[in-house]
Amino acid sequence: MPRDEEFLFTSGRVKALENRLLGRSIIERILEAEDTEAVLRVLSETDYAPEFEEAGSIYDFEKALENSMKRTFDLIRESLNDRRIVRFFTLKYDYQNLKVIAKSRILGSEASGSLSRLGEVPLDELVKLGKDEADAAVPEAMKTAFEAAMRIYEETRDPQQVDLLLDRALYEELVELTKGIGHQFLKDYLAASVDLTNIKAMVRLKYMEADFRTLGKALLPGGTLGQDFFEKYYQEPLQSLVEALSSSRYAVVVKEGLEKWIATGNPASYEKLSDDYLLGILKKGLYKPFGLETVVGYIGARENEIKILRVLLVGKINGISEDLIRERLRDVYV
C-alpha cells in the first residue's frame, strides 16, 4: 500500500488546484445565463478560459472539455511517480476507443474522428489494430479483449455483445490495477462503482425481460455484491431488491433512486444519486491533507465537473429550460 508521504508534492499541488474547481455559484450563473454568449462570459472567468478561447466557438465545447481534462491528467502524471493512479482514470477512455474501433470495423467505416484523446494508447496504433495489422503497439490485455470481441461478433452478429465484452475486460483490468496499487480507498471506490452499475444493469435487463444468460454477461467483476446475489433477485419482483439493499451502504441511492425508477420508469434519478454517492466517497480527499485520497478525489472531481459542464452546455445550446437542466445536475466537489 502506498504511504501518504508519497503524495506530499502532488497533494500540495492539488490543494492549490482545488481552489479553481467550479463552485456552486459558478454553476448557478451558467444555469441562469441568458444565452450561449453569457455562458462563455462566465466560463472565461474560470480555469476553462484558455480551452474555450482556443476552441473559438461554444459548439466545439466537447473539444474544449477534453483538452481541459487532458491538462489535468498530464499535470498529475508529471507530478506523481506512480503512473497507475492516473491510469485508473484514463483506462476507460482507451476501452471506449476500442469500442469505437470495433464498431467501425463492423460497419467498415473510418473511426479516427470520434476517438477520445484522453486514453494513453496512441490512436494510430488503435486504428492499426482495427485494420488487423500485426505490429499494432497496443497492450496485450486490450489486444486480447479486442480479438475476443471480434470473435463474439462473428458468432452472434450482435454489436451489443461487443460492448458487454469490452466493458467486462475494462473492469477486469481495473480490478487488477487497483490490486497492484494496493490502496483500500481505490478498491472501495471501484467496488461501489461496480455495484451501482450492476444494480442498474440488472434493473434495466429486468425491464427488457432479458434472459438469465444475458444477466451473467452484463454483470461487471469487482463488486461487493456477487453474481449469485443478482441471480437470486432477478427472479423476484424489484421491490424485494430495494428491500434487500435498504440496509446496505447503497440505501440512499436505492431507496430514492430505485423507487423513483420503478414508479416513473425513468432511471435519471438513480443515475444522479449514484453519481452523487460516488462523489461522496471521493470527497474524503477534500478533507485529507495529503495522500492518495486527495489526488484521486481531485481527478474524480474534475471528471465530475466536466460531466456537469457537458449537461449545462448541451442544455444551454439547445435552449432547454433551467429547471429541466437543474434536475440532471450532479453535486459538486467543493
Binding site: 506530499l8 508534492f9 502532488t10 500540495g12 499541488r13 492539488v14 490543494k15 492549490a16 488546484l17 507530478s79
Partner: peptide, 17 residues
C-alpha cells in the same frame, strides 16, 4: 523534508505562497 514537498506542490501552482 515532508513539509517542503507539500509546500513545493503549492508553490508550483501559486508562487506567491
Amino acid at each position: 523534508g515532508m513539509v517542503g514537498e507539500a509546500a513545493a506542490g503549492v508553490v508550483a501552482e501559486d508562487p506567491s505562497k
